[in-house]
């Protein structure tokens, strides 16, 4: 599911130095992407204090070989440093590491990476204290993943299987995920399914989700609903408005309704400014609040730089 992207009309000046492709020759392509997001934040909640947070500090390496006949071999290794920046761990964290082959618009990959259900969701918050959707709550990445992606002109289909790897060092849950989305004019519809067994011998859970987003011109409006049997239901509604050529305003509401306990609402409103000459530099600010007992309003402001 494509996140709500209301493209701000940025006129990009010439000569922007954001080239991600480092090397290209003899069928070999090496790309390096970076993502740095640092923000001043006070979380929504009880007795929270402001600090400088690192949401993303990532370096993403992508390499591919053109094998001819529309066939490509590829590999990706992503390192994240945000926990290291906040003194939660030393060094870097391996976030993704996989290899695969693509045949036209179909690819098969395996390794450590996101699951099919990672594509689901429409929420537009910079940060949330609640999970983004039920798939996010149950888990959307794995380290023994086999994944199939089919990307067509108006349709995107993903299937993934995370092996339980019993007895191996990577032993954890078993996940089977499906995701499909389609564009019909200005309307995008998506659906996802996940079956998860969180540990060997444990009960399995089914999660379903559907979403829709509509580009109404003046704004993009979207909603999603997801449910996990015997655990919780959740919905998101969000809207993104282009306040100016370089500025987007987003508002949204998240509701989580657990099978046991009271439901919780969290709302947010944020503004994002993209520099006219550099699409990859953004300033943002957000306020958010929750009806959870004792929770105080939260806020954040920060900057994101990508290349």
């Amino acid at each position: 599911m494509k996140k709500l992207l209301l493209a701000v009309a940025v006129s990009v000046a010439a000569g922007s130095a954001s080239a991600a492709t480092i090397y290209e020759g003899n069928g070999l392509t090496y790309k390096l992407n970076g993502d740095l997001q640092v923000q001043f934040r006070k979380e929504v909640g009880n007795d929270e204090h402001a600090d400088i947070e690192f949401d993303d500090l990532e370096l993403k390496n992508y390499i591919s070989y053109d094998l001819g006949n529309d066939m490509t071999a590829f590999g990706r290794v992503d390192f994240g440093f945000k926990d290291a920046a906040e003194d939660k761990q030393d060094g870097s964290k391996l976030e993704e590491a996989y290899v695969g082959m693509s045949f036209g618009h179909t690819s098969v990959s395996f390794g450590k990476r996101g699951l099919a259900s990672d594509e689901f969701g429409i929420e537009e918050a910079v940060e949330l204290t609640l999970d983004e959707d039920r798939f996010d709550a149950m888990g959307t990445d794995g380290d023994d993943v086999i994944r199939l992606d089919v990307e067509l002109e108006n349709t995107y289909i993903v299937a993934s299987y995370e092996m339980e790897a019993e007895g191996e060092s990577s032993e954890n849950g078993e996940y089977f995920d499906l995701f499909a989305s389609t564009d019909i004019g200005a309307l995008t519809l998506a659906a996802a399914y996940q079956n998860v067994t969180e540990s060997i011998g444990a009960d399995d859970f089914d999660t379903w989700g559907v979403s829709a987003s509509y580009d109404a011109g003046f704004a993009t409006l979207a909603a999603d609903y997801s449910t996990t049997d015997d655990i919780a239901d959740q919905y998101n509604v969000a809207a993104v408005f282009a306040a100016a050529a370089t500025t987007d305003i987003a508002v949204g509401l998240v509701n989580v309704d657990p099978d046991n306990g009271d439901d919780v609402n969290e709302w947010y409103a944020n503004v994002t400014y993209k520099f006219p000459t550099q699409k990859n530099v953004r300033l943002f600010a957000e306020i958010a609040d929750s009806d959870e007992e004792g929770a105080d309003m939260g806020y954040l402001a920060g900057m994101r730089v990508k290349f």
Binding site: S11, A13, G15, S16, A245, T277
Partner: peptide, 12 residues
């Protein structure tokens, strides 16, 4: 080759 003449300009 050309270069941007203003970081804040949106009228390239």
């Amino acid at each position: 080759a050309i270069e941007s003449d203003s970081f804040f300009s949106n009228t390239a």
